[in-house]
Design a protein around this nucleic acid. Sequence first.
DNA 1: GCCATGTTTGAAAGTGATATTCATTAACAT
DNA 2: ATGTTAATGAATATCACTTTCAAACATGGC
Lengths: 144, 144
Amino acid sequence: MKKTKKKIFHDFVTRKGLKSTRQRDVILDVFLSSERHMSIEELYLKLRAKHPNIGYATVYRTLKLFAESGIAREIQFGDGQTRYEHVAEGEHHDHLVCTRCGAIEEFENETIEKLQDEVAASHGFIIETHKLELYGQCAKCRKQ
Amino acid sequence: MKKTKKKIFHDFVTRKGLKSTRQRDVILDVFLSSERHMSIEELYLKLRAKHPNIGYATVYRTLKLFAESGIAREIQFGDGQTRYEHVAEGEHHDHLVCTRCGAIEEFENETIEKLQDEVAASHGFIIETHKLELYGQCAKCRKQ
DNA sequence: GCCATGTTTGAAAGTGATATTCATTAACAT
DNA sequence: ATGTTAATGAATATCACTTTCAAACATGGC
Ligand SMILES: [Mn+2]
Ligand SMILES: [Mn+2]
Ligand SMILES: [Zn+2]
Ligand SMILES: [Zn+2]
């Protein structure tokens, strides 16, 4: 049985001796009910609609905690904004990014991952993480 | 016969109706005589040694022009600094980045590139550019 | 519950990289 | 040589975050 993200985060908070606060709960709810790849500002604006008194700094700090706890991953698509996406346990994927409309699609490719390891090995490297992003025109934008 | 980077940049400047200035020449010389993957600040410091009166803003502006002209490529390794690397015509490579010492190695892998196109095609995308970076420990750092 | 303690919060100020402004200077066409 | 336009550099602004700090809150022990 899989632990929910709420449970994972709560356990993380307890284990680290942190406190469970109303703000963290609310931010987690908004994050979990949002589409993937949200920028911090998007999340903040969505949050502010219902909770106008939660500060920007708290959102930043809390998203960092989400990443640390393993329920979120920080991503940068080169537009100067940090985004956070949901992380499912044991899952990994890379991204296709439309340079016109900004649409983001996800993909997994085992063969590419294997080849990356081979490349790294041939240079004496051991990979810890990697970043693979394909930028181009999505199907929709191509037809317009 | 290959055009030199100086020639390429000069042609670009002419074609765009820009002006050929002492500063641009000097910055180009320093860039061309530098190792790959230099941060803007590194370049500026190197430049300042011999040309203390060239402004930071001019360096930023000129490097952007280099990228636009095709002789340089902007890269981000996630350390918050933009780097510029030399671009050889028709050549492409990706990067291995050591998370300990910052060493950067380059590689090319035709198979990975092909698979990327296939992935993109299967999502209806047409790739314009891509970014593949492998982060981990280099051979040297692993032995320490 | 109530208190003591350490943590978290939000507003404001700070930071660091990059971009812009604007008066002055320099390049190029005529 | 002169006029036109672009480029420069110092200063200032911007943008995305990060830090600071006093006040508010969460939690464990009584
Ligand atoms: Mn994703
Ligand atoms: Mn390179
Ligand atoms: Zn699109
Ligand atoms: Zn190393």
